[in-house]
Design a protein around this nucleic acid. Structure first.
Length: 152
DNA sequence: GCCAACGTTGGC
DNA sequence: GCCAACGTTGGC
Protein backbone atom coordinates (compact mmCIF):
# COMPACT_ATOMS: atom_id res chain seq x y z
CA UNK A 1 0.00 0.00 0.00
CA UNK A 2 1.24 3.45 -0.88
CA UNK A 3 0.79 6.71 0.96
CA UNK A 4 0.09 10.03 -0.72
CA UNK A 5 -0.33 13.71 -0.14
CA UNK A 6 -3.11 15.49 -2.00
CA UNK A 7 -3.18 19.27 -2.15
CA UNK A 8 -6.31 21.32 -2.22
CA UNK A 9 -7.09 24.98 -1.80
CA UNK A 10 -9.59 25.20 1.04
CA UNK A 11 -11.24 28.22 -0.58
CA UNK A 12 -12.37 25.92 -3.37
CA UNK A 13 -12.59 22.55 -1.58
CA UNK A 14 -11.63 21.98 2.04
CA UNK A 15 -11.38 18.91 4.22
CA UNK A 16 -14.57 20.03 5.96
CA UNK A 17 -16.27 20.02 2.55
CA UNK A 18 -15.15 16.41 2.17
CA UNK A 19 -16.57 15.53 5.59
CA UNK A 20 -19.87 17.11 4.57
CA UNK A 21 -20.02 15.36 1.19
CA UNK A 22 -22.37 12.40 0.68
CA UNK A 23 -20.70 9.29 2.15
CA UNK A 24 -17.76 11.64 2.93
CA UNK A 25 -16.61 10.85 -0.59
CA UNK A 26 -15.76 12.98 -3.59
CA UNK A 27 -14.17 12.74 -7.01
CA UNK A 28 -10.73 14.33 -6.77
CA UNK A 29 -11.08 16.25 -10.01
CA UNK A 30 -9.40 19.24 -11.57
CA UNK A 31 -5.80 18.03 -11.53
CA UNK A 32 -4.16 19.38 -14.68
CA UNK A 33 -0.54 18.40 -14.38
CA UNK A 34 0.83 15.43 -16.30
CA UNK A 35 2.98 13.98 -13.54
CA UNK A 36 0.10 14.17 -11.08
CA UNK A 37 -2.20 12.75 -13.74
CA UNK A 38 0.06 9.75 -14.20
CA UNK A 39 -0.07 9.03 -10.47
CA UNK A 40 -3.86 9.37 -10.37
CA UNK A 41 -4.28 7.13 -13.39
CA UNK A 42 -1.73 4.44 -12.59
CA UNK A 43 -0.51 4.49 -9.03
CA UNK A 44 -3.20 5.42 -6.53
CA UNK A 45 -4.85 2.18 -5.49
CA UNK A 46 -7.99 1.35 -3.61
CA UNK A 47 -7.17 1.29 0.10
CA UNK A 48 -4.18 3.67 -0.19
CA UNK A 49 -4.20 6.47 2.37
CA UNK A 50 -3.61 10.12 1.62
CA UNK A 51 -2.77 13.15 3.70
CA UNK A 52 -5.01 16.03 2.70
CA UNK A 53 -3.04 19.27 2.55
CA UNK A 54 -4.47 22.77 2.47
CA UNK A 55 -2.39 25.02 0.23
CA UNK A 56 -2.78 28.80 0.03
CA UNK A 57 -4.26 28.57 3.50
CA UNK A 58 -3.65 30.19 6.85
CA UNK A 59 -1.65 28.32 7.80
CA UNK A 60 -0.92 25.92 4.95
CA UNK A 61 -1.10 22.54 6.66
CA UNK A 62 -1.92 18.87 6.56
CA UNK A 63 -5.45 18.77 7.90
CA UNK A 64 -6.78 15.24 7.54
CA UNK A 65 -6.52 11.72 6.20
CA UNK A 66 -8.50 10.20 3.34
CA UNK A 67 -8.70 6.81 1.71
CA UNK A 68 -8.67 6.07 -2.00
CA UNK A 69 -12.01 4.32 -2.65
CA UNK A 70 -12.02 4.30 -6.46
CA UNK A 71 -9.02 4.04 -8.76
CA UNK A 72 -8.23 6.26 -11.75
CA UNK A 73 -11.02 7.06 -14.19
CA UNK A 74 -11.55 9.99 -16.59
CA UNK A 75 -12.20 13.34 -14.92
CA UNK A 76 -15.60 14.46 -16.29
CA UNK A 77 -14.87 18.15 -15.74
CA UNK A 78 -12.46 18.11 -18.71
CA UNK A 79 -15.46 17.68 -21.05
CA UNK A 80 -17.71 20.29 -19.39
CA UNK A 81 -17.30 23.61 -21.18
CA UNK A 82 -18.91 25.42 -18.26
CA UNK A 83 -16.36 24.06 -15.80
CA UNK A 84 -13.19 25.91 -14.86
CA UNK A 85 -11.22 22.77 -15.67
CA UNK A 86 -12.66 22.33 -19.16
CA UNK A 87 -10.04 21.15 -21.64
CA UNK A 88 -11.15 21.61 -25.26
CA UNK A 89 -8.20 19.56 -26.48
CA UNK A 90 -9.19 16.41 -24.61
CA UNK A 91 -11.20 13.87 -26.61
CA UNK A 92 -13.82 11.69 -24.89
CA UNK A 93 -12.42 8.57 -26.53
CA UNK A 94 -8.90 9.47 -25.37
CA UNK A 95 -9.29 11.35 -22.11
CA UNK A 96 -6.30 13.34 -21.01
CA UNK A 97 -7.13 13.87 -17.33
CA UNK A 98 -7.94 11.37 -14.62
CA UNK A 99 -9.28 11.41 -11.09
CA UNK A 100 -9.79 9.05 -8.17
CA UNK A 101 -12.50 9.02 -5.52
CA UNK A 102 -11.42 9.76 -1.97
CA UNK A 103 -13.27 9.25 1.29
CA UNK A 104 -12.55 11.15 4.49
CA UNK A 105 -11.06 8.92 7.18
CA UNK A 106 -10.44 11.47 9.91
CA UNK A 107 -9.62 15.05 10.56
CA UNK A 108 -6.36 15.45 12.47
CA UNK A 109 -6.65 16.45 16.13
CA UNK A 110 -4.77 19.56 15.03
CA UNK A 111 -3.33 20.63 11.68
CA UNK A 112 0.35 20.02 11.04
CA UNK A 113 1.59 23.20 9.39
CA UNK A 114 4.12 23.54 6.60
CA UNK A 115 6.28 25.53 9.00
CA UNK A 116 6.26 22.62 11.43
CA UNK A 117 7.04 20.13 8.68
CA UNK A 118 9.93 22.26 7.46
CA UNK A 119 11.22 22.45 11.02
CA UNK A 120 11.21 18.69 11.52
CA UNK A 121 14.56 17.10 10.71
CA UNK A 122 13.16 13.73 9.72
CA UNK A 123 10.72 15.23 7.20
CA UNK A 124 13.23 17.06 5.02
CA UNK A 125 12.90 14.44 2.28
CA UNK A 126 9.25 15.24 1.69
CA UNK A 127 8.52 16.71 -1.73
CA UNK A 128 6.45 19.33 0.03
CA UNK A 129 9.60 20.67 1.67
CA UNK A 130 11.44 20.75 -1.66
CA UNK A 131 9.13 23.53 -2.91
CA UNK A 132 7.46 21.02 -5.14
CA UNK A 133 4.32 22.27 -6.83
CA UNK A 134 3.20 18.73 -7.50
CA UNK A 135 -0.37 18.36 -6.25
CA UNK A 136 -0.29 14.56 -5.98
CA UNK A 137 2.81 13.38 -4.14
CA UNK A 138 3.94 10.04 -2.81
CA UNK A 139 4.77 10.06 0.91
CA UNK A 140 7.05 7.47 2.54
CA UNK A 141 5.45 5.36 5.31
CA UNK A 142 7.78 6.78 8.01
CA UNK A 143 6.98 10.36 6.95
CA UNK A 144 3.27 9.55 6.91
CA UNK A 145 3.51 8.19 10.46
CA UNK A 146 5.55 11.15 11.64
CA UNK A 147 2.90 13.60 10.42
CA UNK A 148 0.18 11.66 12.23
CA UNK A 149 2.27 11.60 15.39
CA UNK A 150 2.86 15.37 15.21
CA UNK A 151 -0.89 15.90 15.05
CA UNK A 152 -1.45 14.36 18.46
C1' DG B 1 -0.63 41.07 -4.11
C1' DC B 2 4.18 39.90 -5.13
C1' DC B 3 7.15 37.03 -7.19
C1' DA B 4 10.23 32.78 -7.41
C1' DA B 5 9.93 28.34 -9.05
C1' DC B 6 8.45 25.53 -12.26
C1' DG B 7 5.53 23.66 -16.21
C1' DT B 8 3.87 24.29 -20.93
C1' DT B 9 3.71 26.30 -25.50
C1' DG B 10 5.24 27.47 -29.81
C1' DG B 11 8.47 29.88 -33.09
C1' DC B 12 12.45 28.86 -35.21
C1' DG C 1 15.00 19.96 -30.14
C1' DC C 2 16.13 24.48 -28.10
C1' DC C 3 14.70 27.97 -25.41
C1' DA C 4 12.18 32.43 -24.78
C1' DA C 5 7.79 33.74 -23.56
C1' DC C 6 4.07 32.91 -21.07
C1' DG C 7 0.97 30.80 -17.51
C1' DT C 8 0.29 28.71 -12.97
C1' DT C 9 1.30 27.48 -8.23
C1' DG C 10 1.67 28.58 -3.79
C1' DG C 11 4.53 30.55 0.11
C1' DC C 12 5.09 34.73 2.07
Amino acid sequence: MNHWLLKTEPSSFSFDDLLKAPRKTTGWNGVRNYQARNSLRDELKKGDLALIYHSNADPSAVIGVAEIVREGYPDPTQFDNKDDHYDPDSAPDAPRWFQVDVKAVKKLARPVSLEEIKGNKSLQGMLLVQRSRLSVQKVSPPDFDTILRLAK
